[in-house]
């Protein structure tokens, strides 16, 4: 069973200086937009697969190697990242 996108917070915190789960994505498949934390996350797989809850298209993929993290964002048209203090 999938988790929600908040479960990606630990992996994404290693890459970004901001909490990406609070950012808003726009799905490349259906243009649905919501917080990254609301994505449906399949984690029992060779990587993390975050899918749009509206159309089930893949929005974000995260693959962890021992020395690298691959972040595939082709399913997201954009990420809207709130800035602290604004």
């Amino acid at each position: 069973m999938p988790l929600d996108g908040n479960a990606m917070a630990g992996d994404l915190r290693e890459i970004f200086a901001v909490d990406v789960t609070a950012a808003r994505y726009m799905c490349a498949g259906c243009t649905h937009t919501d917080a990254v934390g609301t994505l449906m996350l399949w984690h029992q797989s060779p990587g993390l697969v975050a899918r749009c809850p509206n159309c089930e298209d893949v929005v974000i993929r995260v693959v962890r190697a021992p020395d690298r993290v691959f972040l595939d964002l082709r399913g997201s048209v954009r990420l809207e990242v709130p800035l602290e203090g604004s």
């Binding site: 399949w42 029992q44 797989s45 060779p46 990587g47 697969v49 899918r51 089930e56 893949v58």
Partner: peptide
């Protein structure tokens, strides 16, 4: 036999 899946 672990089940791995990237989607529904």
């Amino acid at each position: 036999f672990p089940v791995l899946s990237a989607g529904p």
